[in-house]
Nucleic acid binder design. Structure first.
Lengths: 202, 202
DNA sequence: GCTATAACTGAATCCTGGTTCATTTTTTAC
DNA sequence: GTAAAAAATGAACCAGGATTCAGTTATAGC
C-alpha cells in the first residue's frame, strides 16, 4: 500500500526545503569561492547530510535553483519598477536605481549573483548564460527604442547595453569587496550619470 | 661533492620551464573553469606529472605566475602606448584601443585574465586584488586630472573609473563567449565613445 | 496499538586530482 | 669509464568532499 502525505507533513517538508535553500544562500554568500560543502549547508539547516539529497538531486541542481531563484526575484523587482514609467530614459534610470538599491539591501543576493554566478557560469554546463543575455537585452531594447526615437547618437546597441551592464557588475563588485564606508548617494549618482551620458543622453 | 649545472642544462631547463608555462596557459585558456589538472599540463608539455613539481612549487604558485606574467605583459603594452600622447583624453583613448586590440589578438591572455582570473581571485588568498585595483587606479588618475583641468563634469572619479573598466570586462567577455562574427570596428568605436561620453567629454 | 511505508540519519564509499617518493635515467667531475 | 649527484619518471598516496545506503525513527492507515 502507498501512504499519502498529510498536510502537516507536506507543510513541514516545504518549510524544510525553504530552510535548506536559505541555509544554502547563506553559505554561498559567505565563502566567496565555489568551495562550499553540502555538509556545511546541512549543518546550517540542522539536518543530516543525507537528508539534503531527499530535497535536492545534487549540488549542481541546488546551485541552479538558488541562482534562478535570486535572478527571478531581481528581475521581478526591476520589472515592477519599470512599469511605473513610460519614458525610456525614466525606465532606464529606474532600473538602475532599483537594481543598485536591491543589491545594497540584499547583500546576499548581490554576492551570489555577482561573485558566485560568473564562476559557476563557466563551470557548469552553461545553463545560465541566458540570464546574462536577458539582462543585457533588457537594456538593449531600451537603447534601440531611444535610437528609433532619434534621442541618442548612432551606436551598436548591443555593445552599449553590454557596457552598461558591465559598469554595474564592476562597481557592485568593488563595493562588495571593500570594507570602507562608501558615500552611496554620490556613488550612485555618478554611476547613473555615467551610463546616461554613455548612451548619449542629450 | 656538489655538481654544477652546465650552461647546456641551464638552457634546457629554462626552455622547459617556459614550455610548461606555455602549456599551462593553453590549458587554462581552454577549459574555462578552474578545473584544469596538473596532469593535463604535464601531458601537453610532454613531461611526467612529477616533473612539474621540479619547476613549480604547486598549482597555486603556477597560477600566480601565469596571471602576474600576463598582467605585466598587458600593462607594459598599455604603458608604452600611453607614453606616445600628452593629452589625457588621448592617453585614455589609446589605452582603450591598445587594450582591446591586444585582447583580440591574444585571445589566450584575454580568456585567462578575464574569465579565469576573477574565479581564482576569490578562491585563492586575494593575492591578485591589487591587479584589479591597479587597472582601475590607472583610469582614475586620468579622470582626476581631467577633473582638475575642469574638462569633465564633477563626479566620483573612483566610481567612474570602476565603471569604465567594467565596460571592458563585460564587452570582452561577451565577445569571448560568442561564436558569431562581430563588426570589430563598429563595436570598438561604440565602446570607446561610450566611455568618452560616460566620463563627460565635452 | 500494530504494521507497512516513508523520512531521516551519518558513517562508509567513491572519485577526483594534487602531491610525493622510490626508482630509473642523465649529467657531472675526475 | 665510473661513481656521485641531479633530474626525471609515473605509480602510489592522500585529502576533501559529493554521494550512497543500511539502519533508525516517524508517519499513515487500519
Amino acid at each position: 500500500m502507498v501512504y499519502n502525505k498529510t498536510k502537516k507533513v507536506l507543510a513541514r517538508q516545504e518549510k524544510l526545503r525553504k530552510k535548506i535553500l536559505a541555509a544554502a544562500k547563506e553559505v554561498m554568500a559567505e565563502d566567496t569561492a565555489g568551495k562550499f560543502s553540502i555538509k556545511s549547508i546541512a549543518q546550517k539547516a540542522g539536518i543530516a547530510t543525507g537528508t539534503f539529497y531527499l530535497y535536492f538531486a545534487n549540488k549542481e541542481a541546488l546551485i541552479e535553483i538558488v541562482v534562478q531563484d535570486l535572478y527571478a526575484e531581481l528581475l521581478a523587482i526591476i520589472k515592477e519598477e519599470r512599469a511605473r514609467y513610460t519614458d525610456v530614459f525614466d525606465k532606464l534610470r529606474a532600473s538602475m536605481e532599483v537594481c543598485i538599491k536591491t543589491f545594497l539591501k540584499k547583500r546576499q543576493m548581490a554576492k551570489i549573483l555577482l561573485v558566485y554566478f560568473p564562476e559557476i557560469n563557466s563551470t557548469i554546463n552553461s545553463k545560465f548564460t541566458h540570464i546574462e543575455k536577458d539582462l543585457i537585452n533588457f537594456v538593449k531594447e531600451d537603447i534601440d527604442q531611444l535610437l528609433a526615437e532619434d534621442r541618442i547618437p548612432p551606436q551598436d546597441s548591443l555593445v552599449s547595453a553590454t557596457a552598461f551592464v558591465g559598469t554595474f557588475r564592476e562597481v557592485m563588485l568593488s563595493w562588495l569587496n571593500t570594507e570602507e564606508e562608501v558615500d552611496w548617494e554620490q556613488a550612485y549618482n555618478t554611476l547613473v550619470e555615467y551610463n546616461m551620458r554613455g548612451i548619449g543622453k542629450k
